[in-house]
Nucleic acid binder design. Structure first.
Length: 514
RNA sequence: GCAUCCGUAGCUCAGUAGGUAGAGCACUCGGCUUUUAACCGAUUGGUCCUGCGUUCGAGUCGCAGCGGAUGCACCA
């Protein structure tokens, strides 16, 4: 039994009165010869199908149509005369009149609780109040629930309890399931979009000797028999580009990424990213591609390209604005950073603008910091910011005309970065120099700098065709599609800090029983 | 990591000035029976997140800790 003081996370504890009551009913059911955890049930209709099928049935009408439905009991009225049965598709009301049921079944019914799964046989009717119902002539228990559900009127609103016991959240708050359903639809739409265009989805390693491809701190784990530390990937980029080197021309991966950074409403330690690479295109082609893919996804999930998000309307109507980073800074601050040529001068400009600098080591990094602190939050409608400083883009091809810049864009929506794409750097000597520079920063103590991946450089020396590549944060995209304020709302089981004591006590309990 | 706020029954929440721990719903028992949060009656249910302190006395005041939310930082 759990120690007390953890009510927010233990729900009804093992020693709880309500649970004990249900255990008693479980024993009583067994005494009646009922098997409380049977193996299968043959159903004829889901709730939604019945509502559709009997749409025209008038109130106070009885049919002789026999159906079999099953699901979870979430509400009951009049001592189980009226029962709300829920399956995945929705609700169907059961009418359990005692004249239609045997005494044996009536005795059984007394031992049911909200939360139990049952399967019923009965005839379709519509009540005087107009509610489509099933006159139950027979039923069976499909699962006895031992835990009381939260009050259905007040709801289950405690945010921590909802995230810690997400299955209860899903039962009590249908919007949770709706959001996850839409997430699944969004991922399916993207896969279909890419598959239709001859892309191959190829899975790349999650466990890596060096974690590269992004500026982020990795998680460390350990392989026992090899006796080496391994890192969880922070990006799929370096391996997907190796596939392009290997001769694939269109590849992608929708995969879990792990970054050992802070947690917030927009950051979960593990999240899902689409990375896509396509040979013979550049970042201009890629922006067209990204627009088309995201709009296609929104249309398939929401049926519209106009999204209501946190009180704002986001229009995905194409084309989306494309602005050079320098021009965006000029628009917002009035400062033309292009006329500022040196690192020292740029630092002064930043200070004048009230931008706080920390670890910036170059002119380009300062420009990026100015952009992030002054411009990002103003980009509500979808906007591609293009042409980034080379210093913050070690994997991007140099801009074909602008010195010091690279052919990179980031897509911003609602002030948030949603995607990052570029003309991929394919010059192996340039790539080596850039990664060596990153390695120097890492050696100097910058934990987010990339490690020197010599095999990746070797791959580049074999030769990669001109390639465009993009990464899109799936969780963040789904947040927009589902009007979710927190990334945790679009993740089935978000990362939570464990509560040590109950877990330990549970282990002790298990140990005692063994 | 920093700041602010939060933690009381299974759920949702009150709790006044520091003075025996409360409500609604749920649960249990009884009554009633074509409801729409059914209704009527009765009962039951607590490590007030944890620990320490102040006090005759702490849900309430103080300190420390744990967990969470939001914002900032980091970052995508």
């Amino acid at each position: 039994m759990f120690a007390g003081g953890y009510s927010v996370t233990s729900l009804e504890s093992e020693g709880g009165r309500l649970r004990a009551e249900r255990l008693r009913k479980l024993e009583d059911l067994k005494g009646l010869g009922v098997k409380p955890y049977p193996y299968r049930f043959e159903r004829t209709h889901k709730a939604e199908a019945l509502h559709k099928l009997y749409e025209g049935l008038a109130p106070e009408t009885e049919t002789q149509d026999v159906v079999r439905v099953c699901g979870k009991v979430l509400n009951e009225r009049n001592s189980w005369m009226f029962v709300d049965l829920y399956d995945e598709s929705g609700k169907i009301q059961l009418f359990c009149h005692k004249e239609s049921l045997s005494q044996e079944k009536l005795d059984m019914r007394k031992l049911f609780d909200k939360g139990d799964y049952i399967g019923v046989t009965g005839t379709v009717r519509r009540t005087k109040a107009g509610e489509l119902s099933i006159r139950v002539t027979d039923f069976e228990l499909l699962c006895k629930s031992l835990q009381p559900l939260p009050d259905s009127w007040e709801g289950f609103t405690d945010v921590e309890a909802r995230y810690r016991h997400r299955y209860v959240d899903m039962v009590m708050n249908p919007s949770v399931r709706d959001t996850l359903r839409k997430r699944s639809m969004a991922v399916r739409a993207i896969r279909q979009f890419l598959d239709d265009r001859d892309f191959l989805e190829i899975e790349t390693p999650t466990l890596q000797v060096e974690a590269g491809g992004a500026d982020a701190r990795p998680f460390v784990t350990h392989h026992n028999t090899l006796d080496i530390d391994l890192y969880l990937r922070i990006a799929t980029e370096l391996h997907l580009k190796r596939l392009i080197v290997g001769g694939f021309e269109r590849v992608y991966e929708i995969g879990r990424i792990f970054r050992n950074e802070g947690i917030s409403t927009r950051h979960n330690p593990e999240f899902t990213m689409l990375e896509m690479y396509c040979a013979y295109g550049d970042y201009n082609d890629l922006m067209d591609f990204a627009e088309e893919m995201v709009v296609d996804c929104a249309m398939k999930v929401c049926g519209t390209n106009s999204l209501e998000y946190q009180g704002q309307t986001l229009s995905l109507a194409r084309p989306w604005r494309r602005v050079r980073m320098n021009d965006a800074i000029k628009e917002v601050t009035g400062v033309d950073v292009e006329s500022v040529k040196t690192f020292d001068e740029m630092k002064k400009v930043a200070t004048t603008l009230g931008v706080h600098l920390e670890k910036e080591e170059s002119r380009g990094e300062v420009i990026n910091t100015i952009f992030e602190s002054k411009v990002e939050s103003t980009l509500i409608q979808p906007t591609f910011i293009i042409d980034y400083p080379v210093e913050i883009s070690p994997l991007t091809k140099a801009h074909r005309t602008n010195p010091g810049e690279v052919e990179r864009f980031e897509l911003f929506v609602f002030g948030r970065e949603l995607a990052n794409g570029y003309s991929e750097l394919s010059d192996p000597l340039d790539q080596r120099a850039r990664l060596e520079d990153q390695a120097r920063k890492k050696a100097a103590g910058n934990e987010e700098a990339m490690p020197l991946d010599l095999d990746f450089i070797l791959a580049m020396e074999y030769g990669m065709p001109p390639t465009m590549g993009i990464g899109i944060g799936i969780d963040r995209l789904v947040m927009f599609l589902t009007n979710s304020a927190s990334i945790r709302d679009v993740i089935a089981f978000p990362t939570m800090k464990p509560i040590a004591e109950p877990a330990k006590q549970l282990k002790d309990t298990v140990a005692e029983k063994v």
